[in-house]
Amino acid sequence: MDHSPESNETPPLHSTYECDPDLRDLIVHFVDELEQRVETIRSAFLSEDMVTLQRISHQLKGAAGGYGFDSIGDSAARLEYDLLTDEAMVSDLSERVEDLINNCRAAVRPADS
Protein backbone atom coordinates (compact mmCIF):
# COMPACT_ATOMS: atom_id res chain seq x y z
CA MET A 1 0.00 0.00 0.00
CA ASP A 2 1.21 3.45 -0.79
CA HIS A 3 1.28 5.50 2.37
CA SER A 4 2.71 8.70 1.08
CA PRO A 5 2.27 11.21 3.89
CA GLU A 6 -0.16 14.00 3.11
CA SER A 7 1.37 17.37 2.81
CA ASN A 8 0.49 19.55 5.78
CA GLU A 9 0.48 22.52 3.52
CA THR A 10 -3.07 22.25 2.36
CA PRO A 11 -3.86 25.76 1.09
CA PRO A 12 -6.10 27.85 3.35
CA LEU A 13 -9.70 26.82 3.07
CA HIS A 14 -12.24 29.65 2.90
CA SER A 15 -15.92 29.15 3.51
CA THR A 16 -17.89 29.67 0.35
CA TYR A 17 -20.37 31.61 2.53
CA GLU A 18 -17.89 33.89 4.27
CA CYS A 19 -19.47 37.00 2.79
CA ASP A 20 -22.97 36.02 3.92
CA PRO A 21 -23.84 38.30 6.86
CA ASP A 22 -26.35 35.76 8.23
CA LEU A 23 -23.66 33.14 8.53
CA ARG A 24 -20.51 35.06 9.31
CA ASP A 25 -20.60 34.67 13.10
CA LEU A 26 -21.60 31.05 12.82
CA ILE A 27 -18.66 30.32 10.53
CA VAL A 28 -16.24 31.98 12.94
CA HIS A 29 -17.65 29.83 15.71
CA PHE A 30 -17.49 26.71 13.56
CA VAL A 31 -13.85 27.29 12.59
CA ASP A 32 -12.90 28.01 16.20
CA GLU A 33 -14.47 24.76 17.31
CA LEU A 34 -12.68 22.75 14.65
CA GLU A 35 -9.47 22.86 16.66
CA GLN A 36 -11.16 20.98 19.47
CA ARG A 37 -12.71 18.53 17.03
CA VAL A 38 -9.35 17.80 15.47
CA GLU A 39 -8.01 16.93 18.91
CA THR A 40 -10.95 14.64 19.55
CA ILE A 41 -10.55 12.94 16.18
CA ARG A 42 -6.85 12.41 16.78
CA SER A 43 -7.20 10.95 20.25
CA ALA A 44 -10.19 8.81 19.25
CA PHE A 45 -8.18 7.40 16.39
CA LEU A 46 -5.14 6.70 18.57
CA SER A 47 -7.24 4.97 21.19
CA GLU A 48 -9.27 3.19 18.51
CA ASP A 49 -12.47 4.73 19.85
CA MET A 50 -14.47 4.05 16.72
CA VAL A 51 -17.76 5.20 18.24
CA THR A 52 -16.48 8.72 18.84
CA LEU A 53 -14.72 8.79 15.50
CA GLN A 54 -17.90 7.84 13.73
CA ARG A 55 -19.99 10.37 15.62
CA ILE A 56 -17.71 13.25 14.74
CA SER A 57 -17.35 12.26 11.11
CA HIS A 58 -21.12 11.85 10.88
CA GLN A 59 -21.68 15.34 12.29
CA LEU A 60 -19.11 16.96 10.04
CA LYS A 61 -20.46 15.14 7.03
CA GLY A 62 -23.90 16.59 7.67
CA ALA A 63 -22.90 20.08 8.71
CA ALA A 64 -19.56 21.21 7.23
CA GLY A 65 -21.00 21.75 3.76
CA GLY A 66 -23.69 23.93 5.23
CA TYR A 67 -20.99 26.20 6.69
CA GLY A 68 -19.36 26.44 3.29
CA PHE A 69 -16.64 23.83 3.78
CA ASP A 70 -17.56 21.15 1.28
CA SER A 71 -14.16 19.49 1.31
CA ILE A 72 -14.38 18.91 5.09
CA GLY A 73 -17.82 17.41 4.62
CA ASP A 74 -16.56 15.19 1.81
CA SER A 75 -13.57 13.87 3.71
CA ALA A 76 -15.75 13.26 6.77
CA ALA A 77 -18.20 11.36 4.57
CA ARG A 78 -15.42 9.15 3.21
CA LEU A 79 -14.17 8.42 6.72
CA GLU A 80 -17.65 7.61 7.99
CA TYR A 81 -18.27 5.36 5.03
CA ASP A 82 -15.11 3.39 5.74
CA LEU A 83 -15.92 3.19 9.44
CA LEU A 84 -19.31 1.72 8.63
CA THR A 85 -17.87 -0.78 6.19
CA ASP A 86 -16.89 -3.85 8.12
CA GLU A 87 -13.91 -4.78 6.01
CA ALA A 88 -12.08 -1.54 6.70
CA MET A 89 -9.08 -2.11 8.97
CA VAL A 90 -7.98 0.52 11.42
CA SER A 91 -4.74 0.93 9.50
CA ASP A 92 -6.67 1.72 6.34
CA LEU A 93 -8.34 4.55 8.14
CA SER A 94 -5.22 6.55 8.85
CA GLU A 95 -5.26 8.12 5.43
CA ARG A 96 -8.89 9.14 5.79
CA VAL A 97 -8.33 10.51 9.27
CA GLU A 98 -5.30 12.47 8.18
CA ASP A 99 -7.17 13.83 5.21
CA LEU A 100 -10.01 15.02 7.43
CA ILE A 101 -7.64 16.55 9.96
CA ASN A 102 -5.71 18.41 7.26
CA ASN A 103 -8.89 19.80 5.81
CA CYS A 104 -10.10 20.93 9.23
CA ARG A 105 -6.78 22.58 9.95
CA ALA A 106 -6.82 24.43 6.67
CA ALA A 107 -10.14 26.10 7.41
CA VAL A 108 -9.81 29.81 8.11
CA ARG A 109 -12.14 32.35 9.67
CA PRO A 110 -13.77 34.89 7.39
CA ALA A 111 -11.60 37.93 7.04
CA ASP A 112 -12.52 40.89 9.26
CA SER A 113 -14.07 43.65 7.26
Binding site: L23, L26, H58, L60, A63, G66
Partner: peptide
Protein backbone atom coordinates in the same frame (compact mmCIF):
# COMPACT_ATOMS: atom_id res chain seq x y z
CA UNK B 1 -26.14 17.71 15.33
CA UNK B 2 -26.43 21.11 16.91
CA UNK B 3 -24.12 22.38 14.17
CA UNK B 4 -27.08 21.80 11.87
CA UNK B 5 -29.52 23.39 14.32
CA UNK B 6 -27.49 26.60 14.36
CA UNK B 7 -27.25 26.57 10.62
CA UNK B 8 -30.99 26.12 10.14
CA UNK B 9 -31.68 28.88 12.61
CA UNK B 10 -29.44 31.25 10.66
CA UNK B 11 -30.75 30.15 7.30
Amino acid sequence: SDLVHRLLRAR
